[in-house]
Amino acid sequence: MSYLETTRNVYKEAAENPQKGLCCTTTPVWQLPDLDIPPKMLEMNYGCGSTVHPRDLVRNPKILYVGVGGGMELLQFAYYSRQRSGVIGVDVVEEMITACKENFVTAEVLNPWFHSDFVELRKGDALHLPVEDNSIDVAAQNCLFNIFKQEELKQALKEMYRVLKPHGRLVMSDPTCEQEINDTLREDERLRALCLSGSLPLKDYIKMITDIGFGTVEIRARRPYRVLDPKRYATDELLYIESVEVCAIKDPMPADGPCVFTGKTAIYFGEEAFFDDHKGHILMPDQPLAVCDKTAGNLAALVGQDIFISPSTWFYDGGGCC
């Protein structure tokens, strides 16, 4: 049995018998006016963060969500879309699609504004998305890509890139780990299916994204997630896993490489009215400017300039350079 078959079986069981502890979501569930999430959806919240960000969901976007779970994030996306087939949900597990449809029936009762036809559910997998090229404004996945091995992950990212419109956004939440995870853990099919042993270091995760062609990457959150300890797992050391929320934008790739925002800020404290690096970045005195890591490095390399560059906060909320 392949690890992908094991994954399907794990989530088939999770669809038929909701498991509250299957994942450990690190982001509080959005509390929005007139949004009432059915209890079963909450029980089936099989993710490690959130992919629903209001600033992504403007001007009636066409939304794709891969790996539907119990439908909670589909319902949240529909809250902003509110149009027939405005949200497409794709899942390879038939039982999960069935459970999701059943949850939508309950959601209609609890939420007068919601209609099930706001969400179009399609059978398919992340490696072969049943979606047209350049047709999606916002694509999302939560704790799914962490399951894939490198070649499958590359293919899944290519598929997301293919279906997104120019400047479209891929919003993701996945576990990451800066320590080396041994082969025994990485090849454990069930642990990989549970998003515990497939974690990449964040730098490698970002490189996978930019290698596909995404010109802008935003690190929106980085939080503690789980530990794999020697008492319960095949490891000689305690492995610390974090969850990361990332937005990759299908912008053209800059000639000098991608813009990756990790929460760095530039502050000019000189005596001039402003500082202009003549590369599109103007710093006003004592006003922090969010900068990508590339720009932060270029500014830090300037000799004799009164500019402070903050460390990465691993939180970026828009604005700033580029």
Rank of each mutant, 00 (worst) to 15 (best):
V10R: 01
Y11H: 06
Q19N: 13
L22I: 05
T26N: 07
I37L: 09
P39V: 02
G47T: 15
V52Q: 10
V58K: 15
V66F: 09
L75K: 09
Q76M: 12
S85G: 14
K101F: 00
F104L: 13
V105D: 10
P112Y: 00
R122G: 10
K123L: 08
G124C: 09
L127C: 08
H128T: 15
P130Q: 08
E132I: 09
N134K: 15
A139F: 07
A139I: 10
N142P: 14
N142H: 06
F148G: 09
Q150T: 09
K158P: 02
R162C: 01
V163K: 13
P166H: 04
P166Q: 07
P166R: 11
R169S: 08
L170E: 01
M172K: 02
T176S: 14
C177H: 11
E180L: 10
N182C: 13
N182E: 02
L185Q: 12
S197T: 10
L200H: 12
L202D: 00
I209P: 13
I212Q: 06
G213H: 13
V227M: 12
V227H: 12
P230F: 04
R232K: 11
D236M: 07
L239W: 11
A248N: 05
A248R: 12
D251T: 11
P252V: 14
A255W: 00
D256R: 08
T262K: 12
I267K: 10
G270L: 04
D276K: 00
M284T: 07
P285K: 10
A296I: 02
D306E: 13
I307K: 08
P311T: 07
D317M: 13
